[in-house]
Amino acid sequence: MASVQERVIAVTARVLGLDPAKIKPEHAFTVDLGAESVQSVELVAMFEEEFGIEMDEDEALSVQTVGEAAEYIAKVCREQGVEA
């Protein structure tokens, strides 16, 4: 089964129309990957759908990088008893 980070990269690639191989954990969604504000909202929605979790929008939107997103999502999965 893919890791949380691999799944985060796959969702990011799908939403932003990027090659997953070129997305690195240190990449910032806006500065490095070019996510616009509406796409940030869509990313949050797609992460929730992918992992079956509910994220606080303020916390989720404060996450800057792909690696931070994976860490945050793993934490939310633990808190909500979802197997990631």
Binding site: S37, V38, V41, E42, V44, A45, D56, E57, D58, L61
Partner: peptide, 9 residues
């Protein structure tokens, strides 16, 4: 994007 989202809260 044509759907209801949480948006920016």
């Amino acid at each position: 994007e044509g759907v209801v989202t949480k948006g920016f809260g």
